[in-house]
């Protein structure tokens, strides 16, 4: 999807608090087999370290950023454990996906992008000019 739309939409992966961090006894909740175990960070530096592991392990090609240790952006968007949004150039929410993992739906984001891209392409030239 990123490769399909990167010319018309900017993508940003925001690393937020882990869904299944190691607990105080050293166990993940629930245990994810085959996945590196990460502790819930208590400092910004620890979160950055986890984010870098995430980026490398998932071979992320999307531009990415890290939520603060206060989890503010995650909370502002009710984004935990995973969620998709599309934000317009006017700063308004064009699409709000449902929280994952059960309702995480990239196809819905794909449809929202196509709807937006086609709407922008068919907008009258005068309207486009006003935006700039």
């Amino acid at each position: 999807m990123y490769n399909d739309y990167k010319d018309s939409v900017d993508f940003l992966f925001i690393y937020i608090k882990e869904a299944h961090p190691l607990d105080k006894n050293g166990a993940t909740i629930p245990k994810n087999k085959g996945v590196a175990e990460l502790k819930d960070p208590s400092t910004a530096e620890e979160r950055v370290k986890n984010a870098n592991i995430c980026k490398k392990s998932l071979a992320l090609t999307l531009p990415n950023a890290i939520d603060g240790i206060d989890n503010k952006t995650c909370e502002d968007y009710a984004a935990w454990p995973e969620r998709l949004y599309l934000i317009g150039t006017d700063g308004r929410v064009l699409f709000r996906g449902e929280p994952g993992p059960a309702r995480f739906d990239p196809a819905a984001l794909d449809a929202a992008i196509r709807k937006h891209v086609s709407a922008a392409a068919s907008a009258p030239a005068s309207r486009k000019a006003k935006k700039t």
């Binding site: 939409v9 900017d10 940003l12 925001i14 690393y15 993940t28 592991i53 969620r83 934000i87 150039t89």
Partner: peptide, 21 residues
């Protein structure tokens, strides 16, 4: 740093929230 206000100026922005585990 990445700021939403700057990022969204020229194009819409798709936000993908997630973690590793």
């Amino acid at each position: 740093r990445v700021k939403l206000d700057e990022l969204r100026k020229s194009k819409p922005v798709a936000l993908v929230f997630g973690s590793y585990t």
